[in-house]
């Protein structure tokens, strides 16, 4: 019961991140929104690990953390050096 409430709330966070990704005036807003989406998915997986007590999915979290970080860094470098690239 508790896990489903927490999952619903993380789903709401994902929806707000999606709304910000849709609205976000600047590109950077969209990057941050996607990053918050990734972290909310990670938290949902952690809630599932808490609910079932199995650490089957925990390595997924490590991969998502690193991939989310790399994506944000790549996007911020793109934003910063955009005028030279074109």
């Amino acid at each position: 019961m508790i896990a489903s409430i927490a999952l619903i709330i993380f789903g709401l966070t994902f929806v707000t991140a999606g709304i910000r990704a849709a609205i976000g005036p600047t590109l950077a807003d969209r990057v941050v929104a996607l990053d918050v989406g990734v972290v909310s998915i990670m938290s949902a997986v952690a809630v599932d690990a808490a609910d079932t007590g199995s650490t089957r999915l925990v390595p997924v979290l490590a991969v998502m953390a690193i991939v989310g970080f790399t994506a944000t860094v790549a996007a911020s470098r793109f934003i910063e050096y955009e005028e030279r690239a074109t």
Partner: peptide, 22 residues
């Protein structure tokens, strides 16, 4: 979970800071 928590706490603020700077 400690490994994942350390990985996230170390990397996410750095990424958002890079975004701030960009």
């Amino acid at each position: 979970f400690l490994v994942v928590a350390v990985a996230l706490v170390l990397t996410l603020p750095v990424a958002v800071h890079l975004l701030f700077r960009a």
